[in-house]
Design a protein around this nucleic acid. Sequence first.
DNA 1: TATTATAATGACTTAATAGTCATAATTCAA
DNA 2: TTGAATTATGACTATTAAGTCATTATAATA
Lengths: 201, 201
Amino acid sequence: MTEIQDKYELILSSSRKLIEEIGFSALTMDKVAQKAGIAKGTVYLYFKDKDDLLEKVLSSGFEKMFERIKIRVGNESGAFNKLKSLINENIRHIYENRYFFKTIFLDEVNVVFLKKKSKESYNLRRKRYTDYIAGIIKSGIESGEFRKDLNYSKSAYMLVSLIKTGAIYNFLNGMFDLTSEMIEKDTEEILNLFMRGISVK
Amino acid sequence: MTEIQDKYELILSSSRKLIEEIGFSALTMDKVAQKAGIAKGTVYLYFKDKDDLLEKVLSSGFEKMFERIKIRVGNESGAFNKLKSLINENIRHIYENRYFFKTIFLDEVNVVFLKKKSKESYNLRRKRYTDYIAGIIKSGIESGEFRKDLNYSKSAYMLVSLIKTGAIYNFLNGMFDLTSEMIEKDTEEILNLFMRGISVK
DNA sequence: TATTATAATGACTTAATAGTCATAATTCAA
DNA sequence: TTGAATTATGACTATTAAGTCATTATAATA
């Protein structure tokens, strides 16, 4: 019955549980020790410092996810099928660890440093924007421009996410000072993906 | 020439510049005061506390963006054209404020609390995963399954982003304990969007 | 100019928390 | 069984940074 293997794993899983409960920003080494039922000094026998502990929590989770995805995808042939399995396995992993990912995903960077009240206004602003986009998509569905089976609210989220991700991609690849043409190209790219997807017509 | 209107705006813009330079996590009230060339106490005459200041920095930026987008989109007719303008205006706004958004976007929640070294490993892991997906998409392009004009690397980022956003959407809407069928439905939804987009065939 | 009101200052207080280390408990080997 | 080696403890130190407030400077008014 869940005999704890060793202190290292105990500390890792306690930290994980704590992150699920109180989030990253509120995690302290005292709380980790308390959660694990050991002294704070002991934590430092197994992890160099707080940064090391957080890094290990994140990386162990990632490795588990990546492993299961590679196994699953390895059984498929054809890019379409591989992608389908990948998406499915990724989503499964997220939901099997949903309390953890809830914290990871919902506490966006901007929100992390805000207290409860400002967090709420932030979320309201985001909702105002996505609702606005959702309205446009809804009208497009009603006019027959867009697929009838769409969840317009969710589609709006997706669009905002694609725009953001496009910018992140450029930044990460050193594309920082875009010309006007590059902005147009980016717009077309996202619009194309959102309207027609990646498949050939 | 650039006469500072008032202290309130001075503090806001100084905070904004600081966030661009050192990021959210390193922002202190002492540094804000120093950057603005005033005493710390003065900051507290214009903002209730640090949380209030951060909230005002974020909301003023958001309001500016939302305003320009609404004006631009208001001139268009038809959902497709509206969306196209919206994407374009949103991207323009991001690039005109690129130093700010670079910090906002790149310092993801998990990364924010890590120091330099762990940050690098995090980014490497993310790259390993997107490279893996990019390889699949590349093979799909070569086999003729996917559009030849795709940037497979960027498309991989988009897919990861769509998966993440789908989960965020569910969480925000209280869909927390998904049945197996709901997971399948989610998979189909994302797959459909990524493969075919939102347009009717 | 004198007086009051308003704005600004920055040294100080307080709180939180990461990391240490002398001491104690436990395990292991001879 | 005993003493050395390993593991664990938690009170303590050091640091950082938010927020305060008595004091000073500036502006407004009479």
